[in-house]
Structure formats: structure tokens, C-alpha cells
Simulated assay, not measured.
Amino acid sequence: MIVKVVNKSKHSLPQYATGLSAGMDIRANLSQPVVLNPLERKLIPTGLFIELPEGYEAQMRPRSGLALKHGITLLNTPGTIDADYRGEIGIILVNLSNEPFTIQDGERICQMVVASHAKVEWQPVEVLDETERGAGGFGHTGKK
């Protein structure tokens, strides 16, 4: 798939870390380091602007290493970049740890997965088909 991209950052384009990676690392594009205090959230610029084809979205997801080692994650995860959005991609990071964390320019702050999606056309009905699960909600399937 070809995706048009404008890179106004100081860094190379996002890339896959391995041949079978689903996500590409996204880097912070900062003029100076940003400190995230405990429970603080900030919008971090990337310098990236993309043009996705119709029927696709870019999902912004946390990096497991930042989450495990430092408690840094995305506040709205996955964040969705719609195909008609043309602004700069910004990443809302939050610090869920008890220690301040400094984000450096060029640091890998999240990963982006490009995924297809379907458009829904609603069909109003009076009754839904039965299933084995039925209306069972949260925790319905129990522990295994």
C-alpha cells in the first residue's frame, strides 16, 4: 500500500522494526525535551502529515517498553487518524508512574498500525438472532 506523507520532522520516516512487525515506530519531534510529571498528559508533535486511502485508518498504540519500564502510555488508545484528516499527527501521552519522565526529541513514543475498516449501514429490526452467549456482559465467560 502506498500512503502519501509529508515529513516536517527532523527524523526519518516511520518504519517497521522487523519484517513481520504490524506497527511502525513514531518519533517525537521536539525543539526541546518535554517533562511529563506523574498523572500529567501532553500532546506531543510528530511532524508527520499523512493521506490515507478511503477505507483505512491509522491506529496509534502505546509502545510496550515505555509502558512497562516507565508507565508512559497513550491516553486514548488506540487513537484513530481518519483518512480525511490532513493535520499534523499529535500523540497524547500520559505518565501513569510516580516519577517524572522526560521525552527527548526523536524518541520512539508510540507505534502506528494502518488498518482497513468497513462502513456500517444500519438495518433497524425488532429482534436480534439468538446466540449461545446472548446478553451475557462483562466477565460473562468466567475464568478458565
Rank of each mutant, 00 (worst) to 15 (best):
R133A: 12
M112L: 00
E126Y: 00
V127S: 06
G137D: 09
V125E: 04
A115F: 11
T131F: 09
D129G: 15
V120F: 11
V127F: 03
M112R: 08
F138Q: 09
Q123I: 13
A135N: 14
G134H: 03
C110R: 01
P124K: 07
T131K: 07
E121F: 07
V127N: 09
G134T: 06
V127C: 03
V120G: 06
P124E: 05
A115Y: 07
V113R: 02
A118L: 13
A115P: 04
V127K: 09
R133Q: 11
V114R: 03
A115S: 11
F138C: 05
I109L: 01
V125P: 02
D129V: 15
V125W: 04
T131Q: 13
G137T: 01
P124R: 03
F138T: 03
D129I: 12
L128P: 05
H117W: 07
G134L: 00
V113N: 04
E121S: 06
L128N: 11
E126C: 05
V127L: 08
S116Q: 05
A115L: 00
E130Y: 14
K119E: 14
S116W: 05
A118K: 12
A118G: 12
V125M: 08
A118S: 13
E130L: 14
M112S: 10
Q111A: 04
W122C: 11
H117T: 04
I109N: 01
G137L: 00
G134N: 05
P124I: 00
E132C: 11
R133G: 13
C110Q: 01
D129C: 14
M112V: 02
V125I: 06
E126T: 07
R133E: 03
V120H: 06
Q123V: 09
G134P: 08
G136D: 14
P124C: 00
V114L: 00
P124S: 08
V120P: 10
W122K: 14
V127A: 07
V120E: 02
V120K: 09
C110E: 00
V125T: 04
W122V: 15
K119N: 15
V127Y: 07
H117V: 06
F138N: 08
V127T: 11
F138K: 02
C110N: 01
T131M: 10
A118M: 12
V114H: 04
A115C: 08
K119Q: 12
I109V: 06
E121Q: 11
A135S: 15
V127Q: 09
G134R: 07
L128T: 11
T131G: 10
E126D: 10
V114Y: 04
E121M: 08
L128Y: 10
